[in-house]
Design a protein around this nucleic acid. Structure first.
Lengths: 180, 180
DNA sequence: CCCATTTGGGTGAGCGCTCAACCTTCTCGC
DNA sequence: GCGAGAAGGTTGAGCGCTCACCCAAATGGG
């Protein structure tokens, strides 16, 4: 690889600022979530995704996919959630290799309790800092980034019919009680 | 805490997209950096910051600050970099509590070798996906986020005179050979 | 049918981060 | 100058992630 195009001054500024913003924001939200609810952000998204699914249950691989997680990471994470009493494993009758993760009532309650403070954190550290227009611009920018990255990893994707995500699920920042 | 303002539909979309984009991008850059150069991203920034500093040296606490890192994290990280031969510790003559981290020639070379591929990664996964205008918008957005977050943690900051950062250092995405 | 391959999922080692404690050296009011 | 507190830095425990590997069940071509 010979000399690539280096970043110009504006690109450099944006890049450094992006790095700082993403790290500081993630760290701050994580701290507040941990402080207010004792839930690490890594657990939080898994709980959210389960809460949005029919019967609060999802196959392990589907859960891994919607949460942009490796199977391994998910497996470890679910093990911890099970130990916490927030999730249960259930075996799949039609495919004996398969496993479901199921959100328990305790897990749902933990999520319900955690959500308001978390939304406030997101609002105060992110959206309150941006104009409406910037918020919309940010969405378009991150959409473009995501599209590019998913494209690169669509080498192996082969439309497995068991996948049923991308079906307009409700989301994390609405009260879980409306999600069940 | 009673019901906060939940996110509206656009905010929700932006937030989910932001989460996906930042995680996927970070993971992808990390993988490529690791694959091409064997350097974890966490080491990379420390090496960059040192390479930009006069005499390639920085007090531990200054280094922690410019890299948005806790002292503890930095201490562990520098220990690993020292074990790798990329950094050396030096004690401070004027303050016997103090320590410098100094980039070695081997560290500088590792950085020089890693930089081109890393810049290409950043370009292909981020800037190539955005229009010039979006790139500039992103910079303004992340600036606003950073400003908000730093503000919250400026409780304790008391203009320590030893701090001399924010002085327009050169940066990571220029060839390190111009940085020394 | 049967065996090779693929797929769903779990495991363990190793690394890096956080958090809380800790030691040492400075600083500063008195 | 001295004692209390602050500042610089390190350490260790514990957790979560990645990576490579493993096993069992399903699939599919011959």
């Amino acid at each position: 690889m010979t000399e690539p195009r280096w970043l110009d001054q504006d690109e450099h500024h944006t890049w450094r600022s992006y790095l700082a913003a993403t790290r500081l924001l993630s760290a701050q939200l994580d701290r507040e979530l941990q402080r207010d609810s004792g839930i690490p952000q890594s657990y939080y998204e898994i709980l959210v995704r389960l809460s949005e699914s029919p019967d609060r249950r999802l196959r392990m691989s589907d859960l891994a996919e919607v949460s942009d997680s490796s199977r391994s990471r998910l497996s470890h994470a679910v093990a911890r959630l099970v130990a916490n009493g927030w999730v249960e494993r259930e075996s799949c009758p039609t495919d004996r290799r398969g496993a479901f993760a199921v959100l328990t009532d305790a897990g749902f309650e933990a999520l319900t309790n955690a959500a308001p403070a978390h939304v406030s954190s997101v609002r105060s550290h992110l959206f309150d800092r941006l104009s409406r227009e910037q918020m919309l611009q940010l969405g378009e920018i991150t959409d473009a980034i995501v599209a590019g990255l998913r494209e690169s990893s669509v080498e192996i994707e082969q439309e497995c019919t068991s996948r049923q995500h991308e079906r307009g699920v409700l989301h994390e920042e609405q009260p879980p009680s409306r999600v069940a």
